[in-house]
Amino acid sequence: MKAIKILSMTILISAFALSTQNAHAGSGSANVSSACATLEFMAKLVTLNAMLPANYDDLTELREMEVQLAELNTMVCQPVILTATTRGNSRYDNGARVSNDLYYNSWHFSNRQLFMAQAGEDTTIYYPNGRIMAFHWMHGDQAIFWPNGNLATNYFRAYDVAWYYPDGNIITYEAGYSGGRWFYPFPRLDGRIGQEAIASNWGVEDESFTFLNFNSNGALYTSRERIRRKLIFDDFDLLDVPGILLLVTRLYQNTDSAKQFAPADINITGAPF
Protein backbone atom coordinates (compact mmCIF):
# COMPACT_ATOMS: atom_id res chain seq x y z
CA MET A 1 0.00 0.00 0.00
CA LYS A 2 2.84 2.36 0.91
CA ALA A 3 4.53 1.61 -2.40
CA ILE A 4 1.31 2.39 -4.26
CA LYS A 5 0.99 5.73 -2.44
CA ILE A 6 4.59 6.62 -3.28
CA LEU A 7 4.03 5.66 -6.91
CA SER A 8 0.83 7.73 -7.06
CA MET A 9 2.60 10.71 -5.52
CA THR A 10 5.46 10.37 -8.01
CA ILE A 11 3.01 10.32 -10.92
CA LEU A 12 1.20 13.40 -9.58
CA ILE A 13 4.45 15.31 -9.12
CA SER A 14 5.60 14.36 -12.62
CA ALA A 15 2.27 15.39 -14.11
CA PHE A 16 2.37 18.72 -12.27
CA ALA A 17 5.93 19.38 -13.41
CA LEU A 18 5.00 18.54 -17.00
CA SER A 19 1.92 20.78 -16.93
CA THR A 20 3.98 23.61 -15.43
CA GLN A 21 6.62 23.16 -18.10
CA ASN A 22 3.97 23.15 -20.84
CA ALA A 23 2.33 26.28 -19.42
CA HIS A 24 5.71 27.98 -19.25
CA ALA A 25 6.44 27.03 -22.85
CA GLY A 26 2.95 28.15 -23.86
CA SER A 27 3.45 31.60 -22.38
CA GLY A 28 6.82 31.82 -24.12
CA SER A 29 5.21 30.90 -27.43
CA ALA A 30 2.59 33.61 -26.88
CA ASN A 31 5.41 36.08 -26.26
CA VAL A 32 6.94 35.21 -29.63
CA SER A 33 3.56 35.61 -31.35
CA SER A 34 3.17 39.01 -29.73
CA ALA A 35 6.67 40.08 -30.80
CA CYS A 36 6.04 38.93 -34.37
CA ALA A 37 2.78 40.89 -34.48
CA THR A 38 4.75 43.90 -33.26
CA LEU A 39 7.32 43.32 -36.00
CA GLU A 40 4.56 43.20 -38.61
CA PHE A 41 3.13 46.48 -37.36
CA MET A 42 6.58 48.06 -37.50
CA ALA A 43 6.98 46.81 -41.08
CA LYS A 44 3.80 48.66 -42.04
CA LEU A 45 5.11 51.88 -40.54
CA VAL A 46 8.51 51.56 -42.21
CA THR A 47 6.98 50.75 -45.61
CA LEU A 48 4.56 53.68 -45.41
CA ASN A 49 7.33 56.05 -44.35
CA ALA A 50 9.39 54.89 -47.35
CA MET A 51 6.45 55.37 -49.73
CA LEU A 52 5.40 58.71 -48.23
CA PRO A 53 8.59 60.30 -46.90
CA ALA A 54 8.96 63.72 -45.37
CA ASN A 55 11.31 66.11 -47.17
CA TYR A 56 14.35 65.33 -45.02
CA ASP A 57 13.93 61.54 -44.78
CA ASP A 58 16.79 59.26 -45.80
CA LEU A 59 15.23 56.82 -48.30
CA THR A 60 18.32 54.62 -48.35
CA GLU A 61 18.09 54.19 -44.58
CA LEU A 62 14.37 53.37 -44.81
CA ARG A 63 14.99 50.72 -47.48
CA GLU A 64 17.77 49.21 -45.39
CA MET A 65 15.37 49.04 -42.46
CA GLU A 66 12.88 47.14 -44.61
CA VAL A 67 15.59 44.58 -45.33
CA GLN A 68 16.50 44.26 -41.65
CA LEU A 69 12.89 43.71 -40.64
CA ALA A 70 12.50 41.11 -43.38
CA GLU A 71 15.58 39.25 -42.11
CA LEU A 72 14.15 39.00 -38.61
CA ASN A 73 10.74 38.02 -39.93
CA THR A 74 12.16 35.25 -42.14
CA MET A 75 14.34 33.81 -39.41
CA VAL A 76 11.96 33.85 -36.45
CA CYS A 77 8.36 34.63 -37.39
CA GLN A 78 7.77 32.68 -40.60
CA PRO A 79 8.90 29.18 -39.47
CA VAL A 80 5.94 26.99 -38.52
CA ILE A 81 7.85 25.34 -35.66
CA LEU A 82 10.12 27.24 -33.28
CA THR A 83 12.91 24.78 -32.50
CA ALA A 84 15.32 25.01 -29.58
CA THR A 85 18.02 26.19 -31.97
CA THR A 86 15.78 28.88 -33.42
CA ARG A 87 14.71 29.96 -29.95
CA GLY A 88 18.19 30.40 -28.53
CA ASN A 89 20.72 30.53 -31.33
CA SER A 90 19.25 32.13 -34.46
CA ARG A 91 21.99 34.09 -36.19
CA TYR A 92 22.03 36.49 -39.11
CA ASP A 93 24.44 36.08 -42.02
CA ASN A 94 26.86 38.50 -40.33
CA GLY A 95 26.99 36.29 -37.22
CA ALA A 96 24.88 38.55 -35.00
CA ARG A 97 22.43 36.63 -32.81
CA VAL A 98 18.74 37.52 -32.70
CA SER A 99 18.34 36.48 -29.06
CA ASN A 100 19.71 33.97 -26.58
CA ASP A 101 16.09 33.19 -25.67
CA LEU A 102 13.27 34.44 -27.89
CA TYR A 103 10.72 33.53 -25.22
CA TYR A 104 12.02 35.67 -22.39
CA ASN A 105 15.06 37.74 -23.39
CA SER A 106 15.89 40.66 -25.69
CA TRP A 107 15.58 40.61 -29.50
CA HIS A 108 17.98 42.36 -31.88
CA PHE A 109 18.19 43.30 -35.55
CA SER A 110 21.06 42.26 -37.82
CA ASN A 111 22.90 45.54 -37.11
CA ARG A 112 22.77 44.57 -33.40
CA GLN A 113 20.29 47.34 -32.63
CA LEU A 114 17.87 46.36 -29.85
CA PHE A 115 14.33 45.63 -31.07
CA MET A 116 12.77 44.97 -27.64
CA ALA A 117 14.10 44.12 -24.18
CA GLN A 118 11.69 41.20 -23.82
CA ALA A 119 8.80 39.89 -25.86
CA GLY A 120 5.36 40.07 -24.29
CA GLU A 121 6.38 42.66 -21.69
CA ASP A 122 5.81 46.38 -21.28
CA THR A 123 8.94 47.65 -22.96
CA THR A 124 10.27 50.26 -25.36
CA ILE A 125 10.21 49.23 -29.03
CA TYR A 126 13.06 50.37 -31.29
CA TYR A 127 13.42 50.67 -35.06
CA PRO A 128 16.61 49.35 -36.70
CA ASN A 129 17.84 52.96 -36.97
CA GLY A 130 17.68 53.32 -33.18
CA ARG A 131 14.63 55.58 -33.09
CA ILE A 132 11.74 54.67 -30.82
CA MET A 133 8.46 53.34 -32.18
CA ALA A 134 6.75 53.24 -28.76
CA PHE A 135 7.89 53.89 -25.21
CA HIS A 136 5.35 51.64 -23.44
CA TRP A 137 4.15 49.15 -26.03
CA MET A 138 2.05 46.90 -23.78
CA HIS A 139 0.08 49.68 -22.13
CA GLY A 140 -2.06 50.75 -25.07
CA ASP A 141 -3.20 54.35 -25.44
CA GLN A 142 0.45 55.26 -25.99
CA ALA A 143 2.14 57.48 -28.56
CA ILE A 144 3.44 55.83 -31.74
CA PHE A 145 6.24 57.36 -33.82
CA TRP A 146 7.24 56.93 -37.47
CA PRO A 147 10.77 55.71 -38.29
CA ASN A 148 11.74 59.31 -39.11
CA GLY A 149 10.88 60.30 -35.53
CA ASN A 150 7.67 62.17 -36.30
CA LEU A 151 4.51 61.49 -34.31
CA ALA A 152 2.04 59.03 -35.86
CA THR A 153 -0.55 59.24 -33.08
CA ASN A 154 -0.73 60.18 -29.42
CA TYR A 155 -3.02 57.26 -28.56
CA PHE A 156 -2.55 53.87 -30.19
CA ARG A 157 -5.55 51.50 -30.02
CA ALA A 158 -7.81 54.36 -28.98
CA TYR A 159 -11.02 55.36 -30.71
CA ASP A 160 -11.76 58.75 -32.25
CA VAL A 161 -8.18 60.06 -32.19
CA ALA A 162 -5.94 61.69 -34.80
CA TRP A 163 -3.25 59.98 -36.89
CA TYR A 164 -0.64 61.80 -38.97
CA TYR A 165 1.40 60.96 -42.07
CA PRO A 166 5.22 60.84 -41.79
CA ASP A 167 5.40 64.44 -43.04
CA GLY A 168 2.88 65.66 -40.45
CA ASN A 169 -0.20 65.87 -42.69
CA ILE A 170 -3.40 64.52 -41.19
CA ILE A 171 -4.61 61.00 -42.02
CA THR A 172 -7.79 61.12 -39.97
CA TYR A 173 -9.14 62.76 -36.86
CA GLU A 174 -11.37 59.75 -36.20
CA ALA A 175 -9.37 56.51 -36.02
CA GLY A 176 -11.50 53.54 -35.04
CA TYR A 177 -14.67 55.16 -36.30
CA SER A 178 -16.50 53.74 -39.32
CA GLY A 179 -17.85 56.64 -41.31
CA GLY A 180 -15.08 59.07 -40.43
CA ARG A 181 -13.15 61.40 -42.73
CA TRP A 182 -9.79 60.17 -44.07
CA PHE A 183 -7.37 62.16 -46.21
CA TYR A 184 -4.71 61.65 -48.87
CA PRO A 185 -1.32 63.24 -48.04
CA PHE A 186 -1.54 66.07 -50.59
CA PRO A 187 -3.50 69.32 -51.12
CA ARG A 188 -7.00 69.39 -52.56
CA LEU A 189 -7.01 69.14 -56.33
CA ASP A 190 -9.65 71.86 -56.64
CA GLY A 191 -7.23 74.39 -55.19
CA ARG A 192 -9.11 74.93 -51.96
CA ILE A 193 -7.42 74.88 -48.57
CA GLY A 194 -6.93 71.47 -46.98
CA GLN A 195 -6.08 67.97 -48.13
CA GLU A 196 -7.79 65.80 -50.73
CA ALA A 197 -10.25 63.53 -48.91
CA ILE A 198 -10.22 59.78 -49.42
CA ALA A 199 -13.78 59.65 -48.13
CA SER A 200 -16.15 61.43 -45.79
CA ASN A 201 -17.72 58.13 -44.72
CA TRP A 202 -14.72 55.83 -44.94
CA GLY A 203 -15.38 52.12 -44.47
CA VAL A 204 -19.16 52.29 -44.89
CA GLU A 205 -20.59 49.98 -47.56
CA ASP A 206 -21.89 51.68 -50.74
CA GLU A 207 -20.66 55.10 -49.65
CA SER A 208 -18.36 56.79 -52.16
CA PHE A 209 -14.64 57.47 -52.00
CA THR A 210 -12.22 59.45 -54.13
CA PHE A 211 -10.20 57.27 -56.49
CA LEU A 212 -7.08 58.69 -58.11
CA ASN A 213 -6.58 58.35 -61.86
CA PHE A 214 -3.81 59.34 -64.24
CA ASN A 215 -4.24 60.23 -67.91
CA SER A 216 -1.79 59.37 -70.70
CA ASN A 217 0.20 62.52 -69.93
CA GLY A 218 0.55 61.57 -66.28
CA ALA A 219 -1.84 64.26 -65.06
CA LEU A 220 -3.84 63.36 -61.97
CA TYR A 221 -7.62 63.43 -61.84
CA THR A 222 -10.20 61.87 -59.55
CA SER A 223 -13.33 59.79 -59.88
CA ARG A 224 -15.94 58.66 -57.37
CA GLU A 225 -16.12 54.94 -56.63
CA ARG A 226 -18.20 52.83 -54.26
CA ILE A 227 -16.90 51.33 -51.02
CA ARG A 228 -17.31 47.59 -51.40
CA ARG A 229 -15.81 44.25 -50.37
CA LYS A 230 -12.30 44.73 -48.92
CA LEU A 231 -12.92 48.43 -48.37
CA ILE A 232 -15.77 47.83 -45.91
CA PHE A 233 -14.37 48.32 -42.40
CA ASP A 234 -15.86 48.26 -38.93
CA ASP A 235 -14.66 50.39 -36.03
CA PHE A 236 -12.15 47.78 -34.85
CA ASP A 237 -10.63 47.46 -38.34
CA LEU A 238 -10.15 51.21 -38.49
CA LEU A 239 -7.96 51.24 -35.38
CA ASP A 240 -5.18 49.75 -37.52
CA VAL A 241 -4.52 52.95 -39.45
CA PRO A 242 -1.25 51.81 -41.11
CA GLY A 243 -2.88 48.57 -42.25
CA ILE A 244 -5.80 50.48 -43.78
CA LEU A 245 -3.43 52.88 -45.55
CA LEU A 246 -1.56 49.96 -47.10
CA LEU A 247 -4.84 48.61 -48.46
CA VAL A 248 -5.41 52.02 -50.02
CA THR A 249 -1.96 52.05 -51.67
CA ARG A 250 -2.61 48.54 -52.99
CA LEU A 251 -5.63 49.89 -54.86
CA TYR A 252 -3.06 51.54 -57.11
CA GLN A 253 -0.98 48.37 -57.54
CA ASN A 254 1.75 49.74 -55.31
CA THR A 255 4.13 47.05 -54.14
CA ASP A 256 5.22 47.02 -50.52
CA SER A 257 7.48 44.81 -48.45
CA ALA A 258 4.93 44.54 -45.63
CA LYS A 259 3.02 41.94 -47.67
CA GLN A 260 5.59 39.29 -46.80
CA PHE A 261 4.95 39.57 -43.08
CA ALA A 262 2.65 36.94 -41.64
CA PRO A 263 -0.14 37.16 -40.74
CA ALA A 264 -0.64 39.68 -43.55
CA ASP A 265 -3.20 42.45 -43.06
CA ILE A 266 -4.36 41.20 -39.66
CA ASN A 267 -5.51 43.91 -37.29
CA ILE A 268 -2.59 44.69 -34.99
CA THR A 269 -4.88 46.12 -32.32
CA GLY A 270 -5.30 42.67 -30.80
CA ALA A 271 -1.57 42.45 -30.11
CA PRO A 272 0.57 42.59 -28.13
CA PHE A 273 -1.41 40.36 -25.85
Rank of each mutant, 00 (worst) to 15 (best):
L69E: 14
R112Q: 14
P79Q: 13
Y252V: 12
N150M: 14
T269S: 00
A158V: 06
V80Y: 04
S208G: 03
L246D: 00
A134M: 14
Q113F: 07
D237V: 08
P185H: 09
L48R: 09
N73P: 02
I227V: 15
A96I: 09
K259T: 09
F186Y: 15
G179R: 00
Y221P: 09
A35E: 05
R91N: 12
T255E: 15
V248D: 07
I227F: 03
Q78R: 14
Q118S: 09
L247A: 08
N169V: 13
T38W: 03
L18S: 13
I81Y: 10
Y221W: 14
A30S: 14
L220K: 14
N89I: 04
N154R: 14
T86P: 06
I170D: 01
D101Y: 02
N111D: 12
A162Y: 07
D141P: 00
A219S: 10
G140R: 00
A43H: 04
A25T: 05
R97I: 11
A35P: 05
P166G: 02
C77Q: 03
P263N: 04
T153G: 07
D58A: 06
F183R: 02
I144P: 03
L189N: 12
P263S: 00
D93A: 15
Q142T: 10
H108Q: 12
W107M: 13
P79R: 07
D234M: 02
Y92K: 14
K44T: 08
A15Q: 05
H24W: 11
N215E: 08
A117D: 07
R229E: 13
T85S: 13
P242R: 10
I13R: 06
R228L: 05
P263D: 00
D237F: 03
M9Y: 01
N111M: 13
D160N: 15
S8K: 06
N267H: 10
L189T: 13
A96P: 07
T47Q: 11
M9K: 04
H139C: 08
F156M: 11
L238H: 01
E40Y: 07
I171H: 01
L151V: 07
A43D: 05
M138C: 11
Q195S: 15
A197T: 06
E71S: 05
L231Q: 06
M1Q: 09
E66R: 13
N49A: 15
Y104P: 01
L52P: 03
E205Q: 15
H24M: 12
I4T: 07
